[in-house]
Computed example of a mutant assay.
Amino acid sequence: MSDIPPKGVILPDLPNEIMLGIFHRCDARTLLSVRSTCRYWRNKLNSYEFITEMGTRWKSNGCSLFAHFGFSSRWATPLDWMMKINAWSGQTSAFQFPFLLTQEGWFHIIGVQNGIFCIRYCSMGKRTFILTWNPTTRKSSIMNDPGKHYCDDCAFFFSFVYYPRSVNYAIVHLFKEKPESPGWTLTMSTNLVRGWNVSLTCPPYVDRLDPDYVSLDGVIYWVSCLLHEEDVDPPCIVSFSVVTFTFHKYSLPTEAHAHCHNLLIRNDKLCLATNNHDDQSYSSTIWQADAINDDIIWSKLYTFNGIGVPYIPALFVDDNLLHIMERHLPMLDMDGMKSTYFHILKYNETNHTRKTVRWIQYDSYVKMKSIHKFNESFFPV
């Protein structure tokens, strides 16, 4: 071995591909420090290609579930809480928002995508805000809630969607201007242009939308529901593209008429869960959209049955379907009091196995208001 030390290489003289290869193995804190050094590396480490590559690598760290729990009473909304659950081991950990909630406050998770939370909240019981937040980088952005767009008695809901192959996102708000208004209005804000500067009149079928949604490739999808038993129009799927500003209506499979429906995303494809149930058992079928043009071409993935109260499949983690059994049982020697059990199950269609991810029990009447899939990311807010 030579006793002559190797010639040093000045860091900036390394080729870009080697530098990026080094940065791909860094943690979030290091990358944030590098991004702040100069405009060149800020642009490089903020590019869609780099961020998506980091997201792919960080997926090996595991997927988390964020479940929003709360009491059924409206007066108890300030007591809502979030629980972080490992999607494979079921291990739980503490979770804290980057804002203060008082006794008059409340929060609602609009959506979680690309490792970014979109949260509507009220801290002091008066003004409401919309927060986009990356827990990995601890960066956040706050904007005013468009409260002027609806009255206290008007229906409304929000959606959170990313543009295709982009680090940019949009927040879509659908609302009724007055309770007696015949139609709905859509406004939209983006991280590029703050403010609700888009205003569109929605088609008539938007009146029946379920607020739950999924988003894929810059398009938001909702399921229309039956408002009354005498409704003659069958359920359908409604979409809105944040790129073309257009709505579209799709039919469901003929055999997919069921007691309830909900949408899921599996391997970057739109899926539909149909659920039929009675007092003792349930039957669920998962459909996949193989093509989406003027209408959707559906294929049936699988059907599975079980014994228990009705439930809605929640989401896919890879090819595993995670769903939640929610039960409310009377407590012994306590009139009118009920305890709540949440059984999070993982169903694998390949080997037809069911595995318990987590049992959660509360000695009171508790509801799971939403559940979201989360993977760490480096997406900016």
Results as ranks from 00 to 15, higher is better:
A256L: 08
M337F: 13
K369Y: 10
W184E: 12
W287Y: 10
H24N: 13
P380F: 00
T37Y: 02
N191I: 00
E230F: 09
T201Y: 08
T190S: 03
Q113W: 06
I110W: 04
I292R: 01
I344D: 02
A273P: 03
M368A: 07
S339M: 13
I265R: 06
G55N: 05
N293E: 11
Y205M: 07
L200D: 00
Q288D: 04
L200S: 02
L227T: 02
H68Q: 12
H277L: 00
Q103D: 15
S370K: 05
K139P: 00
V34I: 15
G111R: 02
S89E: 09
T137C: 00
S64D: 07
P204T: 07
F66A: 03
Y341D: 09
F95V: 12
H323N: 03
H323V: 01
A289P: 10
R165G: 11
R120W: 12
E229K: 10
I119S: 05
P203T: 11
N267G: 14
Q103V: 15
S60M: 12
K300G: 07
T56I: 09
H259C: 06
I22T: 14
S370L: 02
S251F: 06
K126E: 15
T246M: 13
L272G: 00
F66V: 14
D278E: 07
F245C: 07
T246L: 14
F240W: 05
A256N: 06
I4E: 10
E104K: 13
H323C: 00
I297D: 07
K367S: 08
A273C: 08
Q96D: 10
M331V: 12
A291P: 03
D212Q: 11
D295P: 01
M188G: 00
